[in-house]
Structure formats: C-alpha cells, structure tokens
C-alpha cells in the first residue's frame, strides 16, 4: 500500500498527490511514469512522476479527472493509501546541454513537463515554458513552473489570462521573433502535440513529444501501448514514452485512445450512480 501524504486540488478536476514510494523516488528520472492501481478492483493506469523527493521518499502525481479511475482516485485523501504503485517506468528523457529549450505543456501534460524542466535546467539549458489552458480559473502550477523556467508564457483560449490563443500561437510568436530555439519538448492532449509537431517541422526544430497511449502493464508485456514512429511499431511504455514528434503517427494514437470509449463511459456512469462514501472501497 502506498500512502498519500498530501493532496491538493490544483484546479477544476485536477488534483496533486504526494505519495510515499521511497524506492521509486530514489530512482525516478525526468520523463518516467508509474502505474497506479487505486483499489483492489481497479485498473492499471499510467501517471507521470511530476516530481520526486528522494530524501522524503515521496513522488508527486498530478491527476486530471477524466473517467472512472481518476475520479475514484480523487476520492482519496491524505492518510488513505493507493493499492499499488509501480515504477519508475519508461525511458528517461534524453537530456543534454542544447542551449535554448522550449517546453510546451497543456493540462495533464504539465506533469511530464515539470519533471523534464527540472532536468533540462540542471543540464544548464535556458528554458522557456509555454503553458496552455482554456481559461484563467483552470490555470495551475504557474508558480512551480516559474521557479524552474527562465521564462513562462501562459496562454488561454479566451484571453482571460496571459496571452490569448493556443500554445502554438505562443510558440510561433517566439519563432517569428527569430529567437534561437534548439529543442522543443511537448506533452499534453494529442491534438496539441500534433499541432506543435507540425509547426516545428516547418522550421526544422528538433521536437520531442511525450505520448500517452493506453497502457496495461507498462513493462512491454502486452503491446497495448503501441504507437507508430517513423513507420515502425514501438511500445511506448518501454521504447518511450518520448519520441521524435516529427515521426509520430498522431492520428493513429488519437484513434487508439478511443478503443474502450463505450466501456469507459459505462464505468463512469456506474461509478457516479454508486458514488458516495467511495473512499478506500
């Protein structure tokens, strides 16, 4: 059992958890994730290690509620325990001194982006972070990202905070101002990553995307997480989750993420029907 030491609601439907997992905290590198099973009847869901504290033996998870398992997890409070947490999984982010790195994150993408940003900065890069949200009240971690970044640009779709527009608008802005960008790293909803990849491809900027396909074991055993990169089939949990964004078949990924849609909606409806005092059940 893995105890939750801290829990905080970051924004509507987004929670931050600090979980006791000393072995994982000691090993975790930027870009890696864990597989969590909330309860004994739960499914295995991948969540990025957004931060770690090897001394305290904790890892930080940032969870966006989108369906049964993530809503169920949000019922858990400080003192409760998650049934299973295993990791760290996936390949760590390739980190070098590139020069100027732009990290682009939206929504749950901020989990990988935060940990990657720490690594990128530590390697001596200049770091610009672009964070995109739909509107002002959904913004979180601006403070946390400001601490690690040399510059943070926040965009909102409706212009209620920061720059009005999408993360790609902000990125294009930088490119048009002829800022030298040596590498872009993006994570978030697939359409966002696809748009970033299309933009940077035109300008020949090396770009990495952190993918979020459906996973089960997370150790290369099942092949659920397969994605096509450069025409080759890869298992995102062991070969990734980060790949050259210009080589990724994003449309296929988007399609595969729909594979269990009907069942997931059923699970969510059932959960809402029974939801009340769900804690720890």
């Amino acid at each position: 059992m893995f105890q939750i030491l801290k829990k905080k609601e970051l924004a509507e439907n987004v929670d931050e958890f600090v979980v006791r997992a000393p072995l994982i905290a000691k090993k975790a590198k930027p870009g890696q994730f864990v597989i969590v099973r909330v309860t004994a009847k739960g499914e295995r869901i991948p969540l990025t290690i957004a931060d770690k504290d090897p001394e305290d033996g904790t890892i930080t998870l940032m969870v966006q509620r989108v369906g049964k398992s993530t809503f169920h997890m949000s019922c858990f409070d400080e003192g409760n325990s998650l049934r299973d947490v295993v990791g760290p999984l996936g390949r760590p982010t390739e980190i070098k001194k590139w020069g100027h790195v732009v990290a682009v994150g939206g929504g749950l993408g901020l989990a990988p982006i935060h940990h990657i940003a720490l690594g990128v900065k530590e390697a001596g890069n200049r770091l610009t972070t672009i964070m995109g949200f739909r509107r002002k009240d959904l913004i979180f971690w601006e403070d946390k990202m400001s601490v690690v970044s040399d510059r943070v640009i926040v965009t909102t779709n409706d212009g209620s905070y920061g720059m009005k527009g999408l993360v790609t608008d902000a990125l294009l802005n930088l490119i048009e101002k002829e800022e030298k960008i040596d590498r872009v790293i993006c994570a978030g909803p697939v359409p966002m990553m696809k748009a970033v990849a299309e933009l940077t491809k035109d300008y020949g900027i090396p770009t990495i995307a952190s993918l979020n396909p459906i996973m089960v074991d997370g150790t290369g055993m099942c092949g659920a997480c397969r994605v096509t990169v450069g025409g080759e089939v890869k298992f995102a949990c062991v070969d990734g989750p980060e790949f050259d964004a210009h080589q990724i078949d994003f449309d296929e990924l988007m399609n595969r993420l729909r594979m269990f849609k009907d069942k997931e909606e059923l699970a969510m409806r059932e959960f809402q029907r029974k939801h009340c005092g769900c804690r720890g059940s």
Binding site: E43, H72, C222, G223, M259, F260, K263
Partner: peptide, 25 residues
C-alpha cells in the same frame, strides 16, 4: 496480442467489468 487480451480478461478479471475497472472490447 494474446498477452493483452489475457491480462485484461484473466489477470485483471475484466470479465467482471464493470464490477472491476479493466475493460475489454
């Protein structure tokens, strides 16, 4: 793959879905 199918249905007991959370299509 057989591994994914059997992991979902047998190991995660997906045959009991939605009583358990792991779906199979």
């Amino acid at each position: 793959s057989a591994n994914e199918f059997l992991t979902r249905v047998i190991f995660m007991q997906g045959y009991k879905f939605p009583e358990v959370d792991t779906p199979v299509y």
